[in-house]
Design a protein around this nucleic acid. Structure first.
Length: 229
DNA sequence: TCATTAACTTCAG
DNA sequence: CTGAAGTTAATGA
């Protein structure tokens, strides 16, 4: 996955016909859209954190993704899919979004092949990622799920990390992230406490260290070779 | 092995 | 200062 530099392509008013006023602001827990929003739009996050959730019949929420600056959501509208029971909710105050109507999106895609390609890549990638996540939740234990979650992050930041490996000594690999332990717990279907415990266990084993902004992988090889059930 | 509860400490805004 | 995040331990499925 290359840089998700969609933000550069889309939002900074490079898009003709867009004015300053196309930003939307949300507060924490605001619903950005839900099943009944007829106005289907694609959103690009320019500030804050957003979760895409779905509610089961019992009413508990299943978190499908947690997204942040530069990332895109609402892409189901593009596929014409009735991804109906899906909601997007702001997780932070002062969440800032760029909405794009589906029509505008199509227009852009028609006019600009490069843009169109980027979008398909992102959507494809997202879908695959979600599938993998679901599979994991069904068959693996919490520890494995966390390991694979981190592997996904590694994969996503591959280019940046490889460059880092070349430039720096072998003391560690830095994965940047924006997840709290609670977020991670939600995404891998476990509890905050368990995530804490696992991170501490990894730390004790000298494999990696978690902090709010990054995860440092100390022993990549050892980590990658960890139990894959 | 892990979720749950619950009490506690630390952190960020 | 306050609420959120993170930690730790006990308990039980």
């Amino acid at each position: 996955m290359d840089n998700i530099n969609l933000y550069d392509i889309l939002c900074p008013h490079k898009v003709k016909g867009y004015t300053e006023k196309h930003f939307i602001h949300h507060h924490k827990n605001d619903i950005i859209y839900n099943q009944s929003s007829s106005q289907k739009k694609i959103y690009l996050i320019s500030k804050g954190k957003v979760k895409v959730v779905k509610f089961s019949d019992e009413g508990n929420e299943i978190i499908k993704a947690i997204l942040t600056k530069g990332e895109l959501f609402g892409e189901k509208a593009l596929l014409g899919e009735g991804g109906s029971d899906e909601q997007a909710i702001a997780m932070t105050d002062n969440t800032q979004l760029c909405p794009l109507s589906v029509d505008k999106m199509y227009e852009l895609m028609r006019e600009n092949g490069r843009f169109s390609l980027e979008i398909s890549k992102i959507i494809g990638f997202r879908l695959r990622k979600m599938e993998r996540r679901l599979e994991r939740l069904l068959f693996k234990d919490a520890k494995t799920r966390l390991i694979e979650f981190i592997r996904d992050l590694l994969e996503e930041q591959k280019e940046r990390i490889e460059q880092q490996e070349r430039e720096q000594s072998i003391t560690g690999i830095e994965i940047k992230h924006f997840y709290t332990q609670g977020d991670i717990a939600n995404l891998i279907g476990t509890t905050r406490e368990t995530v804490t415990k696992l991170f501490n266990q990894f730390k004790k084993d000298g494999l990696l260290e978690y902090s709010r902004k990054n995860i440092i992988i100390k022993k990549k090889e050892a980590f990658l070779n960890l139990s894959s059930v």
